[in-house]
Design a protein around this nucleic acid. Structure first.
Lengths: 111, 111
DNA sequence: CTTATTCATCGTAATATTGCAATGAAGCAA
DNA sequence: TTGCTTCATTGCAATATTACGATGAATAAG
């Protein structure tokens, strides 16, 4: 198969899973790190920084744009990418909702 | 290819990515939801709750155990699963480290 | 116009993931 | 023992993902 049965789960569960899927690659995490390390927006000399081919970086950026985490604007001949702050906060909240759900009821390992 | 080039990235980036990969499936999110909704430990009538085959649930539980998020003990003929509280906190911290890194430098969208 | 640079997209090969039926191991009941 | 239940594991088919080279569009320089 290889296809996830999204129809069995809630919208929240599916959204969290699909956002996690975008984060589930070290290259994309590294791109995010570079984007907020350079507090100005960096264009794709990400290709220089990370050791991946230009096509690969471009593909990862597309996925990050796909969930709205990253934005890009044309800067003459090159592209300027940056993090979408509001979406960042939103996604942070998504994970916090998951992580804070546990710890309210039981505090001890039960098995 | 289909293989991730982990050698290009830091250990932290790789760990975060591999934890995110485990969360990147709605069935596994749903399993976690069930595990802390039943504040006692539930055995695998998860098969009843979710609409997936027993083999599929078992495989997902194995991946959750793989990153230490979930523990299981034998309860007679059945299995009792629960969340590992300390690992849970640890992983929560992993994500918070990522999410809190941004927002310190720039507050505005820059492009 | 010609050339170079920057990036996105397409096509492809290698692998990974997902979900399931079938099988097997282990415990318990009769 | 025989049968029943509960899980884990194996083996498979159908996708999905990852990374790359090649190509093409767009802009700027000469």
């Amino acid at each position: 198969m290889g296809v996830t049965k999204t129809d069995l789960f809630t919208e929240e569960q599916n959204e969290l899973a699909s956002v996690a899927k975008v984060l589930a690659n070290p290259a994309r995490i590294a791109i995010l790190h570079h984007l907020f390390r350079a507090n100005a927006c960096i264009n794709s000399d990400l290709v220089q920084e990370l050791g991946l081919a230009q096509a690969t970086i471009s593909q990862h950026l597309r996925e990050l744009k796909g969930i709205g985490l990253v934005q890009g604007t044309i800067e003459g001949v090159s592209m300027s990418y940056c993090i979408n702050a509001s979406r960042w906060t939103e996604i942070k909240g998504l994970f916090n909702t998951l992580f804070d759900q546990y710890g309210l009821a039981s505090k001890e390992d039960c098995c």
